[in-house]
């Protein structure tokens, strides 16, 4: 699961300075709809932005596994327990796939995980919020995964081959998550009074992070024409947010649930959804490390890195040989 986070613009135009002939060839290839592969020539800035984006996405998958992962041991009943296990396992698998895609751009998984812990690399903001009840996991699996699919289906049209292929596979799995999440939400929304309250409260809690999911409004988000032309960035944050609202708000209402925004409506004249300001100051506070769970999430990852270091040291033994399983 992943939301648009940050493609930062470099200072100084010289970052884009490249051999004009190679650059023209590269851009023509993208223009023709061909994919760029790891061994192809690519502009430095293309490599930098992509690596940053794929790395953030990979981190989002493994951090995103944590809020839902804590509910595996509490899932009510066999069906939910097994499904949630499989879902969170998928998210870790997406991380594995994306770290591999990012590695093709020249950075090792170990280095990426180190940068995650030092705060140098970011992950999707939404995972800095807690999953307080079982119903939160239902809302996450439905709506956060739905938002992630919109983002990922869009980005799968991007120009970098390994990322694009990884996203296609990820989207297939995410679509199952969405079905699982929807089924879970429907069960709660049509269940007992207590269950309905649980799911409504969870939706209320998650609405703001969901609105933040696609990133700041286009008016403040900087995306240059170059990144669009190189098909690193495909659609704008607001375009994707509108697509999400269009697809899911009616489904939320259909279930008898309400959205905690009195101003949310589709303007019949513009065809655009209008909504209250979802508190972008909070968005920036959380991105900058001061969300409800930022420190906890990184503390868990730090525990993983430290407590498992001995295993990785054993695996990295220089004279280690391939070990075939014993029957």
């Amino acid at each position: 699961m992943y939301g648009n986070l940050s493609i930062t613009e470099p200072a100084g135009a010289d970052r884009y300075a490249e051999d004009p002939e190679k650059l023209a060839e590269f851009e023509a290839k993208i223009e023709r709809g061909e994919k760029i592969e790891p061994t192809d020539w690519m502009p430095r800035e293309y490599r930098r932005q992509l690596l940053r984006m794929i790395e953030q996405h990979a981190h989002s998958e493994i951090i995103g596994a944590l809020p839902e992962g804590t509910w595996i041991t509490r899932a009510p009943g066999f069906k939910r327990k097994m499904a949630l296990m499989a879902k969170v396992q998928d998210e870790i698998g997406h991380g594995q796939l994306l770290y591999s895609a990012a590695e093709t751009l020249g950075k090792s998984r170990e280095q990426m995980l180190t940068d995650l812990l030092t705060g140098k690399a970011k992950y999707s903001n939404v995972f800095n919020y807690p999953a307080m009840t079982w119903a939160d996991t239902a809302v996450i699996a439905w709506l956060i995964d739905a938002a992630a699919i919109i983002n990922q289906v869009t980005n799968a049209k991007g120009s970098y081959g390994p990322y694009s292929r990884a996203l296609e596979r990820i989207c297939t799995e995410e679509s199952f998550h969405l079905k699982y999440g929807y089924d879970n939400v429907v069960t709660l929304a049509t269940g007992t009074k207590k269950q309905k309250e649980m799911v409504q409260e969870a939706l209320n809690r998650w609405w703001k992070p969901i609105m933040h999911f696609f990133g700041p409004p286009d008016t403040v988000s900087q995306h240059t024409a170059v990144l669009m032309r190189w098909k690193v960035k495909i659609a704008s944050n607001d375009q994707m947010r509108q697509q999400f609202l269009d697809s899911y708000v009616p489904k939320i209402w259909e279930l008898g649930l309400t959205v905690p925004d009195p101003n949310l409506r589709k303007n019949p004249d513009t065809g655009q959804w209008e909504y209250s300001d979802p508190d972008w100051d909070e968005f920036w506070r959380v991105i900058n490390g001061n969300g409800p769970c930022n420190k906890e999430r990184l503390a868990v990852r730090r525990w993983v890195e430290e407590s498992g270091a001995w295993v990785r040291r054993a695996l990295m033994k220089p004279d280690a040989q391939y070990v075939a399983p014993l029957c």
Partner: peptide, 22 residues
């Protein structure tokens, strides 16, 4: 075994322990 999902020393082991748990 499912408790290791997200916490194992390498991602491949998160996945393996989850599979076994399932």
């Amino acid at each position: 075994n499912s408790e290791w999902t997200g916490l194992a020393p390498i991602l491949e082991e998160d996945i393996a322990f989850s599979s076994i748990a399932q």
